[in-house]
Design a protein around this nucleic acid. Structure first.
Lengths: 198, 198, 198, 198
DNA sequence: AAGTAATCGAGACGGTACGTCATGTCTTAGC
DNA sequence: GCTAAGACATGACGTACCGTCTCGATTACTT
């Protein structure tokens, strides 16, 4: 149904927060319920009960809408742990797996990753606003945990993170959930080599 | 340039092989030179010097065109090794990295992986015609190498392959080449645990 | 239904009369049952169980197919009377009205008249193969009847025929049957002026 | 030439009158210069410098475009006379002949009449928007002139009009102009029977 | 209190690509 | 040499979105 929104109070001079949220939620809903193909600017405007121009005024493209939701949701749902412990890192990886598989916001991440492959502009935004900031904090996490003796990675921090996250993402992209046990094994194999892995 | 093809000999009753190849090459070229966004059926037809209907007659969608090229090219450029040796597997992984990074056909793989995330139909085709057949032969490779004592994987065959390929693909998607050395390290960590590597 | 024709005996060297008739009947049937819009060469070929090329080999266009049927049918169904009598002419006009209104072949005449307005080629064929030959014999009919004192037209032979046939055709084109009584009145008014009809 | 229109002032929320006129004129021009076969929606859009969708937004089919021009032009170029005199009617018939033969808008009438024979939808529109309204006023003209003793028709008003207009239209359709003298003779024969027709 | 400015919804506009259909030309292979 | 079958280049069909634009209303700051 095309959003039986009661006509929002017309706004006036300042940006209409209700319209902003309606757009973000409409984008999320459309992606979750109809798939990326249905995620057109016109459909978002219809679903949100908003004029197309209102979208173009504030977002240069639908990718930026998705990035807005991803940045907010991932900060909340898959926070990077503060404590540089082995358990913290393990939990982070498990949480990331769950996020990709079971959280609607995880679909947004996959959609953006895919779109970045088709659209250089999307690639830049995805790098700058999601991947890079997150990677910097992951790097710091790895560094501090290594220093603390919690882990001893066989790879540099970037390669280690790619080696840990890559299988999870690849699984999600190919429709296979990378199991929590496999995540743990991966963790042991790459970050704590040659222990009596119990 | 809009394909200054000399007018192909008109074919007649049977499928025109020249037209088939022209379409496959046009699709490849457009993807490589202009990116996925430029890969429209109309552009392929223009570039190939072929009628749109000729494309729709033989391919249900542009995804199937790419799948045709991917299936042919990947069989040739990244063959799955026959000999179930550690070296064979290591070379396969290195070859796959190179394929993704430096071979135009690797772009096709990434484009299809991305498109599968946006388009359920593409996902099915990609699974059935690329991922599944390849995975079956990878599984057998792992099994035979394990049996031969060449490797002793810490994960089941599917998870192991995802853990090995995932980082390579994820790197390619995020614009980072997963280095050959890292590939080797990954190989050692996951398939030959706790040997004398320190 | 797509013509459950029993597969005609394959022909061989000479023109296949069965194919010729199948095409003519298919064209007639399609026009009568589906209207002119459905009268495509492909549909005729389907309906007749004949290859498209067989049609193009023998007829330069679908208009010529219709002309073939019209020439045959009109000669039979609306013959121009031999006897140059007032009654003969009156019957001819009545017969023409019935032909246009109630005979399927009359639809062919209207269709061709209409198509001639859209298509110069059709106009030429329609003139040469239907209108002109018929008009020549109509002219002769008028001339002989005048000479015999059966009629005394107020217009030249061509204008007289146009004045007599025009209303009938115009009525058929605009969906109104020009009534037999009106035809008679027209006949009296134009060909037998100022007699005792009041 | 593909319409070197200076970019029309973009309109905004309301219907763009310039675009409307551009479409009507383009349709007229194409019909006059290239014939009905060239009158495709795409060609009209090209010629008018207008997007195809702008045409489909306002007209359900190209027939309605032609009807728009016909209704406007015929009201101006072949007005039905107000004064119910013999001379008025005779002038109307002469004017109609000239309209069909020498006015580009007359081609539109013929094209629509022809198209109505091929396309039931066109037939309905042509009836409702051109034929019926005009016939109603013609009927009234005949009635008032009869009452005033200016004419004394030998046929009912509808049949009389068909008998007067039919030859003119039929002549135009078959490529013969029904001469003004013949029109006058027809007028005398049908509307003023048995006078000393001088 | 009037004037200015930015927002909003609505939606028309010129475009591009979609996937389908019919055209008329051509080749193959069977009789 | 005829036939059925059908591939092919061409180009129009009518639809969906794109991103830009103008409208008239609403609302808040400015004077």
């Amino acid at each position: 149904m095309p959003a039986a929104n009661p006509p929002r109070a017309r706004s006036g001079n300042r940006r209409d927060e209700a319209a902003r949220l309606a757009v973000l939620h409409a984008a999320d809903d459309l992606l979750a319920e109809q798939g990326f193909a249905a995620l057109t600017v016109e459909a978002i405007a219809r679903q949100a009960g908003v004029a197309k121009q209102t979208i173009y005024r504030w977002w240069p493209s639908k990718v930026e809408i998705l990035l807005d939701t991803l940045v907010e949701d991932s900060a909340e749902d898959v926070p990077i742990p503060d404590s540089p412990t082995a358990d913290g890192i393990r939990d982070y990886l498990r949480g990331f797996t769950r996020f990709l598989s079971h959280d609607p916001a995880g679909k947004v991440l996959l959609a953006l990753l895919a779109q970045a492959e088709h659209d250089p502009g999307a690639a830049v935004g995805f790098q700058e606003r999601y991947l890079r900031p997150r990677r910097e904090r992951e790097r710091e996490l790895i560094a501090r945990a290594t220093e603390a003796g919690e882990i001893s990675p066989r790879l540099g921090p970037d390669a280690a993170m790619d080696a840990l996250l890559g299988p999870i993402v690849y699984g999600a992209l190919t429709g296979v959930e990378f199991s929590p046990e496999s995540v743990d094994t991966l963790f042991e194999a790459l970050l704590r080599p040659c222990t009596r892995d119990g």
